[in-house]
Design a binder for these strands. Structure first.
Lengths: 135, 135
DNA sequence: CAGGATCCCAGAGGATACTG
DNA sequence: CAGTATCCTCTGGGATCCTG
């Protein structure tokens, strides 16, 4: 199959770093996913088990939570500790880079506060996260 | 179970309205959309016309560009100047709150740079934005 | 030039059920 | 307890064509 990869179509200066990724997009890639940010937010307060995350987010199904945790783990954003015992026990925790990513989310929070205050009635979207946060 | 939700941890003035919005989600709501951030990024350099945005992002179709611009406009993130003349001319520009939102995107960029450097081989996603940025 | 109107589809994510 | 395995739904965006 013809590999017409994106990288190959880039100008030379973009290729000669072996791999030059757009940083903004890298961040988007890591954060995209309905529950990723919310999960990271939960892990701010420390190590959490699978079940604890489920309790914190009652509306997420195990299947989805599992996949989101997997991509976050393979991305190096969170770490996964497995205790081989009965019953099983698995703990998730923010990595160093994960913690710095939460800082970015905090920047979003700060902007959001300002935005909500200054847009008195123009923006009245239903809040997904209120939904996620509720219960 | 004690509700220690994110909302409850916000300042009182945010809670007193019957509608409590999650700031993080408000930001997500504003930014969600495949091309929103990219558009804001383009507008960093100043006022741009519809056609100029299209040139900068050849892969976006007029229909999509139009809708994304509309939601950004109604959200107060960008402003729209219509010149009633023939041929038509419309200019888009970041608002004040829009410029501060770009700062958030910059935070994402900064984190992304760090992330790419420190994850030498773990994260090799294809970069959507390279794609979007190219051409 | 700057878009609206339609139609269409992939793919993220939900529902449900099962298991090491 | 901490997930998998299937199946299914729904919607954001792309393709295409049209117009004030």
């Amino acid at each position: 199959m013809k590999n017409h990869s994106i990288v190959d179509s880039q100008p030379d200066k973009l290729k000669t770093g072996s791999k030059k990724f757009c940083p903004v997009n890298a961040t988007i890639g890591v954060l995209s996913g309905k529950w990723k940010m919310r999960i990271l937010w939960e892990l701010q307060s420390g190590v959490k088990r699978f079940g604890q995350l489920q309790e914190a987010m009652p509306k997420i199904t195990p299947a989805v939570l599992s996949t989101q945790l997997q991509t976050l783990t393979t991305g190096g954003i969170i770490s996964r500790q497995i205790y081989t015992e009965i019953p099983p026990k698995v703990e998730y925790e923010l990595t160093g880079i994960g913690r710095s990513l939460v800082a970015v989310i905090c920047a979003m929070e700060t902007w959001g506060i300002d935005y909500i205050e200054n847009s008195d009635s123009s923006y009245d979207s239903e809040c997904l996260w209120n939904d996620l946060i509720a219960n």
